[in-house]
Write a protein that binds this DNA or RNA. Structure first.
Lengths: 171, 171
DNA sequence: GTCTATAGAAGGATAGAC
DNA sequence: GTCTATCCTTCTATAGAC
């Protein structure tokens, strides 16, 4: 907390003026805010690639590139908090859960727009988010991008398989 | 540390007698030990199901069941440590990396035994571990098993797709 | 070689001056 | 309503008695 306040060049007491709930409230709001920020990345990448399979490939490639550029220090800002706090703080757990549900909803919409039925779209999106999050864990631990590369390839295949035959481009 | 020592009914100083490296060393050895323990679960489940696709299904179903029984409090003992410490402790990061590499190697052997070429076996195993780890993150945050269920279905499909046509059982 | 008692730092939170 | 100074707790680690 002291580090955060110093970094913000604010007096220490201000934290408790603006965040009466203290550390937990500040954490929860940070999760929601950075979660929404990450969520905005999704349409950004997807809209640049009209083909869903290409978009998935691009997304994982970008994730791998960002991870290396961040020296393997920053990946998903939510996952760490989710694992650390889900059993000890209902407020923080709920914030993480809401962010994940938003991402699933956001992704599902785009996936469905590619011609995949609503339920299948949700399932595909959940699987891709799970694979992305898990790959981040493996990559940060090993300091390699192998898991992200491999995961991207599989997710592209999954997207391909979920597409209705009529809309496949053969990527 | 105090909690651990108290739980072990040991005097506090003993920690630093047996683990001169303090918290970091104790953590690293815990990661390696519980990682190996989890690793032993893999052959246990896989050997009970001679068909790889069935084994994958069983593994995810078991993971979901265990998670619910643990009230969503315990999932993977390595992932949390990996995310929390990879940027701040080289010793702990390396311990997590070694565990993950062991799991990949262990899994690859079994997958390869189902008739999948060595490289494809490694890629499939990495993808499945990533999806499992990511699903744990989502499930613990949402306190639902949806992500694990969905991930299990996709991993079964992935295993199916990776099998040589001659060995497919049509599961 | 085992353990107790405590050091020394960092943690989060608050009281009360302005 | 803003901020400073400080409180109390908790943390990891160690010194030194036995």
């Amino acid at each position: 907390m002291k580090e955060i306040v110093a970094n913000a060049r604010a007096p220490f007491g201000s934290v408790y003026h603006f965040f009466p709930g203290g550390k937990e409230q500040l954490g929860a709001e940070t999760v929601r805010r950075s979660g929404a920020e990450c969520g905005r990345l999704l349409p950004l990448v997807l809209d640049a690639h009209p083909d869903l399979v290409e978009a998935v490939r691009a997304f994982f490639a970008l994730a791998a590139q960002d991870l290396v550029e961040a020296n393997y220090e920053d990946a998903c800002p939510i996952a760490t908090v989710a694992l650390e706090t889900s059993s000890t703080s209902e407020i923080l757990r709920q914030a993480c859960a809401d962010v994940f549900e938003d991402w699933i909803e956001l992704g599902s919409e785009r996936v469905a727009a590619a011609g995949i039925p609503r339920d299948a779209a949700r399932n595909l999106t959940i699987a891709m988010i799970a694979m992305l999050e898990g790959a981040f864990v493996l990559c940060r631990a090993t300091r390699t991008t192998e898991a992200l590369i491999v995961s991207g390839q599989w997710c592209a295949k999954m997207a391909e398989a979920a597409m209705p035959a009529s809309r496949r481009t053969g990527n």
